Computed example of a mutant assay.
Amino acid sequence: MAEVEQREPCAREMRSYAAAFVARVTARNRLPLDYSVASLRVVDFLIDGLRKGGARPERARETLFGLGTYVGEVLVRRAGAVWVDFDAGQRAYFGRPVGVRMPDGRVWNPLGKVVNRFEAGGPQESLYTFYLLLHGRARTRPDTH
């Protein structure tokens, strides 16, 4: 049976994709994916588990994409970002059609950041640390989760 190439959602679809992913994974597990900054530690833990469990990139692709949309949605909800469709140059640079734009105009690629964590591992690729060091965040009240 031939493998069907799936289209990645566009920017306007990312919020609902993230919500569906969270509903799917939290229905089976008691994961605290509540869009808090602290929940990015859970994402780090889940990605590390995939790596240590020997998941191949092609088998983990859908899960990594879901985690990437979740990370992006945390940036939207907590840092003032908005989902954007990348232009041709950004798509070529990031290797993805969508990402987030921060309040200061910078664009980031949370989907790629999750893949980097999976491929490279280690604390230097932490999604939690990425958020804490992220340039261009809106000043918001501290996350209480």
Rank of each mutant, 00 (worst) to 15 (best):
A2I: 12
A2F: 12
E3H: 15
E3Q: 15
E5K: 13
Q6G: 09
E8I: 14
A11F: 03
R12L: 11
R12E: 12
R12T: 11
E13P: 02
R15E: 11
S16P: 00
Y17E: 11
A19H: 11
R24C: 12
V25M: 10
A27S: 09
A27Y: 02
R28K: 13
R28C: 13
R28I: 12
N29H: 15
R30N: 12
R30P: 07
R30V: 13
L31Q: 05
L31F: 15
P32F: 14
P32Y: 10
L33D: 01
L33K: 03
D34F: 08
V37H: 03
V37Y: 06
A38N: 10
L40W: 07
D44P: 11
L46A: 03
G49I: 07
L50E: 01
K52S: 11
G53T: 00
G53W: 00
G53E: 04
R56C: 03
R56T: 08
E58T: 06
A60R: 05
A60M: 06
A60T: 06
E62A: 15
E62C: 02
T63E: 11
T63Q: 12
F65K: 09
L67Y: 05
L67K: 03
G72R: 07
V74L: 07
V74C: 04
L75S: 05
A79G: 10
G80Y: 09
G80T: 00
G80K: 05
V82P: 00
V84T: 01
V84A: 01
D85K: 04
F86T: 04
F86R: 04
A88V: 14
Y93V: 13
Y93H: 15
G95F: 03
V98I: 13
G99D: 06
G99W: 00
G99E: 08
R101Q: 05
R101W: 02
M102S: 06
D104Y: 08
D104C: 05
G105L: 08
G105I: 07
R106Q: 13
R106T: 11
R106F: 09
V107I: 10
W108S: 07
N109A: 05
L111S: 09
G112P: 01
K113R: 11
V114T: 08
V115W: 08
V115E: 04
N116F: 02
R117N: 10
R117L: 15
R117S: 12
E119R: 14
E119V: 10
E119A: 14
E119S: 13
G121C: 01
G122W: 08
G122Q: 10
P123N: 10
E125K: 12
E125I: 09
S126A: 05
L127F: 05
F130D: 06
Y131L: 06
Y131R: 08
L132W: 07
L133Q: 15
L133Y: 13
L134D: 03
A138Y: 04
R139C: 10
P142S: 15
D143P: 03
D143N: 08
H145K: 14
